[in-house]
Every structure is written in structure tokens, then in C-alpha cells.
Design a protein around this nucleic acid. Structure first.
Length: 602
RNA sequence: GGGGUCGUAGUUCAGUUGGUUAGAACGCCAGCCUGUCACGUUGGAGGUCGCGGGUUCGAGCCCCGUCGGCCCCGCCA
């Protein structure tokens, strides 16, 4: 039999009461987290968003409430009226913020009962949680876990801090439409059929890129938005089909101004976890990042830089190295401190790891009591010693070597660097290493089609220094390959190896925009068809402008110290892009499809 | 699209070389207990070994297929 709430209001939350409240009459409401029954009295851990308070019900002083307490089960919703009493010295619980006190209950109202949860919210050992699919199906129960609640609260604080920052800097929050027009470049669009215009479709924004640029053309000067974005691509531990980004754009901007806002925003947000980032972040060019770390988003919480061994190996006739070097490839290594004792099994595992990135093999040199190497037979002791010297490795270290195309060496050793750091626990979790990566390439070469595609997006401005090269490459077909050397006014912000933000200074001149479309192999007709409205807008006095977008989830992952994006979203989807709680996506009525003029074929 | 890994009680897991009645912990149910907070204690219930097929005298275990979770590569202007 349930009780009614009536006019009763709670006086405190379950995380609020302290020793100073002893003697007060209070009303608490929450969920039964735990019950410990001692016959003549019963302890209940009462939980709400703010914490847990122990309440005690005694048969002697509150017979009716005690009888009710007998029938309480986990996750029942109750209200208790009672007095705050101090706990005896030995009975205090240092693990609870409310552990100095307990509430001596006079009356209990059972506001609702609950089925036995399909999994335990709190498990001893805490990492023995139920499997993720079970928890996702019952997301509302999983969200009752204090850890997840803290993450969701932290996310709200982060978004508030972002708004504080941009409001204080004269930016205007502007909402852009969710129903847009599909542009076939880039990620796959989520498509929304139009009933009124049968056979036509909206697309959900992958980002509000063009619209925010148009707010600059409109003279709004400084824009920001907490923007939901949608990309119909496969998921990852840090990627969901819908996600949120802080999107910002400003007029009359150069790179320095953009860096200032990136730094200012993140520095303000990281204060939420008492982390002080430098006022001016370290900077590195894309080329240098790739050379030293094999990644455009290096984790700088640890060293282990890549070392180039190519020059030492130009005189070798060992085919895997000789062929690689004569074909423009390279041989590089990382040095793992103190890991000369890597076993065959471990180096095999690491070799399997780098093969995923296209590496043919992983060679090693182990500087144990004796030097051993997978290359000893083919290169000889002298050459091995030379490589060790170049690598900077010392006795006790392991040298891990990959040869191949530059892109493969970077990808595999860059990933291996992270993997080894993770395995060997080289990462100081209390550190926050931030970085701005500059001078991204303007284009990426697509080997399959021998074409160049925009590395960032087609409105990114080339660097002034590379403008002549850009013009030459576009206008002289024989110089087309120079496109690969053109750098863009594009930049990323990286914290702890996560790409947290990315942006660029945009093209505001029509002639350069036209050149860029030509470089991308987009005819004027095609460009007009896809971006006509935007090209029109560019002709009406576009100010120089630029900006960036920051991933809210990735930022929150750093704030919350988690490596899983689902930990910072209230209602995430699985790796196969389904929502297990509502079982979406789902089928729709035939009548709905008919109305839209849509037929599903096999 | 490809690869790896996992799937056994409500949950987390163990399960030997293919061999009797598939186990443990937590949770759940019933009782006892005056200070617990991972309460203790006594007893109890609870299984389509993801699903389908095959091999075998016999399959949780071997083989094939399939579904699902997680991770990775491709993909993500």
C-alpha cells in the first residue's frame, strides 16, 4: 500500500546534512540504496542525486515506521521524517559526506515500490558492473549510479562554463536549423524526407559550418552555438552518430585570435576540475607533430618520440629496408625505456598491433645483458650498434622499428607509441597536456583516384605564404602535385591526445574560393549546384573570418577522466548505432511511408 | 566493408582431455540478530550454457553458420 506525497516537501537533499544540523527536524526523499536489518532496528541508505544519508528506524521509538521499513526493497522511493542525530564516534562513516550524522526516523512514507533491478547499481569492487548492453537497455537505472550522475552534472557545468566564456567575450548565441540541405561531400548525411515536397529531402547538419559563416556575412560579428551534429558513420569509443559541439566563428579574425579564444575557453572550462592550463599553449606544426609523434594529435603526457633511422640504413642491402628507402619511404623507431625484457610473445603482440595500421613487420632491438635483435643476422652487430646510437636507447631499453611508406610509419608508430604508454602505464593521469597543432595541409591525396580532397573543408583558407604555390598548382596541370604541399590556415586543439577542437580561417574572397573548387575537381556548375546560396552570399561583402568547433563530449571525457563517450551522454547509442532503451531505429507504418512517397526496397 | 574479443543463474564470472546431477560470489526469497554502512547468520529458490545446424555413444567444451555487446582498421569534408 503506497502513501501519498500530499503537501509534504523535502527539507534537505540526501547529500546535505552535517554535524551542524544535529537536532533539526528534516524530511528527506529518495531511493532505497541499501537496507541493513537488525531486527529491532533497521538502517536504510537513502540516495538521491546529491548523495547518501543513513537513516535509522527503531521498533522501540517508531513502531509503525519500523514495520514499514521491513517491507522496503532496493530502489523503492520513500520519504522519511525525523531528527538529525550525531553518530557515536566509532559509528561515523568517513566514506560518506553525511557520515557524521544519521536521521532518526519518526515516520516513513512509501511513495513508490520498484521491481528488483535487472542489475546491481553498486557492486563491491565497483568495476564488476553489468555488461554495457544490459545497462544501456535500462539506462534510467544505470543513470542512477552516482558516477554517471556526476558525469552528467559535469557536462552541464562544462556547457555553462562555455556559455559564460563566450558571453563574456561578446559572442552571440545563435540557433541554426536542424533541417538543412544535403551536401554530398564529407560524412554521410542523415536524411529527412519532406511530406510537403514529396521526393525531396532535408539533411541533418554534420556541422553548422556554412550557416555560421553566413552569420559573419550577415554582420553578426561573433557567433557561437552549442550545436547538435549528426553523422551517419561508423562509431568508435569516442564517436557517436549524434554529438554536440561548441561551434564558434568571428569576423576580422586571424589565427592568433582564434588560438586566443580556444585557449581562453578551455582554460576556463578546465578550471571546473581545478586544472590550470598555460595561458599560451605550446604549439607545433602539423609536419613536426607527424615527424616527432606520428600523429596530428599527440599525447604529450609522455615522451617517447619517434626517431628516424633512415639515414643509417641507406647503405644496407636488406631488401625490406632498401626497397622502402629507395621508394621514398622511411624507417623509424621508438625507444621503450627499461623494456629489454620484452618477451617474444609481447613483441609478437606489438607486431600484430602495428600490422593493423599497414606496417609489414615490427623489428626490435633489445638491450639486455646481451643485445638481441630480430635484425642481427641481416644487419650485423656493427649496424645494430649504430642504430642504437641514433635511437638514443640505453642499456635495458627496447627499440621498436617500423619501415614503410611515410604515412604507414607515422600511423603505426604513432599508435604504437600510445599503445606502449598505455600498456606500460607511462601516462601520468594527473597531468593535462594541451597543444595547438598548426599549419595543417590544405589537401589530402587520394591514391586510389589520384585526386586531392579537402583535408579540413572546402572553405578553408590556404596560408598566405603558400598562395602562389596554390595558384600554380591549380592553374598548371603539370604542377598539380604541388597541392599536396599547400598548407592551410587550419588548426586543432589537442588535450591528452584527444582532438578537442578544430578550426580554420575561411576563404572570404570569391576568386580564391573558385580556385579551391577547381583544385578539388568541382566544376563551377557543380559548385553552384551544391553551394550556390553560399557563393552568392560571398559576393555581398564578406569580412575575413574564422573560428573553430570543439567536441563537447571529448571535452567532458577529459573533465570526467573517462575514455568512453557513453559515460558523458545521457542516452547514448551502441557501437552499431542503436538505442537499446527505446529500440531505435525502428520501422514505421506503411501509411507514413505512403504519405511521404517512400517505398522500402530490399 | 574488414579484423579482434566476449556471450554459461537476475548480475559478474569459473567450468579440466568431449563423460555422472553445470558451480562460486553478489543479488533475490524466508527466518534470526541492539550499531551496521561490502552488516552478520541459518535456510531456500533460481539455468533454452545467445540462437540454428553438424560431428560424436555422449557437446557448455569440437566444426559450420548466424545474432548481439565491446574494441580496432577503413570511414568520420
Amino acid at each position: 500500500m503506497l502513501d501519498v506525497l500530499g503537501n509534504l516537501e523535502r527539507s534537505h537533499t540526501c547529500g546535505e546534512l552535517r554535524a551542524s544540523d544535529v537536532g533539526s527536524q528534516v524530511v528527506l526523499m529518495g531511493w532505497v540504496a541499501k537496507k541493513r536489518d537488525f531486527g529491532v532496528f533497521t538502517f536504510i541508505d537513502l540516495r538521491d542525486r546529491e548523495g547518501v544519508t543513513q537513516v535509522v528506524v527503531s521498533e522501540e521509538t517508531a513502531a509503525e515506521a519500523h514495520a514499514k521499513a521491513k517491507n522496503l526493497r532496493g530502489e523503492f522511493v520513500i520519504a522519511v521524517k525525523g531528527e538529525v542525530v550525531a553518530r557515536d564516534e566509532g559509528a561515523k562513516n568517513a566514506k560518506l559526506s553525511t557520515g557524521e550524522i544519521e536521521v532518526k526516523v519518526g515516520e516513513i512514507l512509501v511513495l513508490n515500490d520498484a521491481k528488483v533491478p535487472p542489475f546491481q547499481l553498486e557492486v563491491a569492487g565497483s568495476e564488476n558492473l553489468a555488461s554495457e548492453d544490459t545497462r544501456l537497455k535500462y539506462r534510467y537505472l544505470d543513470l542512477r549510479r552516482p558516477q554517471l550522475q556526476q558525469n552528467i552534472i559535469m557536462r552541464a557545468k562544462a556547457v555553462r562554463a562555455i556559455r559564460e566564456y563566450f558571453d563574456s567575450r561578446g559572442f552571440i548565441e545563435i540557433e541554426t536549423p536542424i533541417l538543412l540541405k544535403s551536401t554530398p561531400e564529407g560524412a554521410r548525411d542523415f536524411i529527412v524526407p519532406s511530406r510537403i515536397h514529396t521526393g525531396k529531402f532535408f539533411a541533418l547538419p554534420q556541422s553548422p559550418q556554412i550557416l555560421k559563416q553566413i552569420t559573419m556575412i550577415a554582420g553578426l560579428d561573433r557567433y557561437y552555438q552549442i550545436a547538435r551534429c549528426f553523422r551517419d558513420e561508423d562509431l568508435r569509443a569516442d564517436r557517436q552518430p549524434e554529438f554536440t559541439q561548441l561551434d564558434m566563428e568571428m569576423s576580422f579574425a586571424n589565427q592568433e585570435m582564434a588560438y586566443r579564444e580556444i585557449q581562453g575557453m578551455f582554460n576556463h572550462v578546465l578550471k571546473l576540475i581545478d586544472v590550470e592550463l598555460p595561458a599560451v599553449w605550446p604549439r607545433i606544426t602539423y609536419a613536426e607533430a607527424m615527424r616527432r609523434y606520428g600523429s596530428d594529435k599527440p599525447d604529450l603526457r609522455f615522451e617517447m618520440e619517434l626517431v628516424d633511422l633512415s639515414d643509417d640504413l641507406r647503405d644496407t642491402d636488406f631488401a625490406p629496408f632498401a626497397d622502402t628507402l629507395s621508394n621514398g619511404g622511411e624507417v623509424k623507431c621508438i625507444v621503450v625505456k627499461g623494456k629489454a625484457d620484452y618477451s617474444r610473445k609481447q613483441t609478437d603482440e606489438l607486431q600484430e598491433f602495428v600490422k593493423r595500421y599497414g606496417a609489414g613487420a615490427l623489428a626490435f632491438i633489445k638491450l639486455g645483458d646481451e643485445t638481441s635483435s630480430s635484425l642481427m643476422k641481416v644487419l650485423g652487430e656493427e649496424k645494430i650498434a649504430q642504430l642504437v646510437g641514433t635511437s638514443g636507447a640505453e642499456k635495458g631499453d627496447a627499440v621498436l622499428i617500423v619501415a614503410g611508406k611515410k604515412s604507414v610509419v607515422a600511423a603505426s608508430l604513432g599508435a604504437l607509441r600510445n599503445e606502449v604508454a598505455r600498456r606500460e602505464d607511462l601516462i601520468d593521469r594527473s597531468k593535462y597536456a594541451c597543444l595547438i597543432v598548426t599549419e595543417f595541409p590544405m589537401f589530402e591525396h587520394d591514391e586510389a583516384t589520384d585526386t586531392y580532397v579537402a583535408a579540413h573543408h572546402p572553405f578553408t583558407s590556404p596560408m598566405d605564404e603558400d598562395l602562389e604555390k596554390f595558384k600554380t598548382a591549380v592553374n598548371d596541370p603539370s604542377q598539380h602535385h604541388l597541392l599536396g604541399e599547400v598548407r592551410a590556415k587550419a588548426y586543432d586543439a589537442v588535450i591528452n591526445g584527444y582532438e578537442c577542437a578544430g578550426g580554420s580561417i575561411r576563404i572570404h574572397q570569391q576568386d580564391i574560393q573558385a580556385l579551391n573548387f577547381k583544385a578539388l575537381g568541382l566544376s563551377p556548375e557543380k559548385a553552384r549546384e551544391r553551394f550556390g546560396f553560399f557563393l552568392d552570399a560571398l559576393e555581398f561583402g564578406t569580412p575575413p573570418h574564422g573560428g573553430f568547433a570543439a567536441g563537447i563530449e571529448r571535452t567532458c571525457m577529459i573533465l570526467c577522466g573517462t575514455e568512453n563517450i557513453r559515460d558523458v551522454m545521457a542516452f547514448p547509442k551502441t557501437a552499431s548505432a542503436q538505442d537499446l532503451m527505446m529500440d531505435s531505429p525502428g520501422e514505421v507504418d506503411v501509411s507514413q511511408l505512403t504519405e511521404l512517397g517512400i517505398q522500402v526496397c530490399e
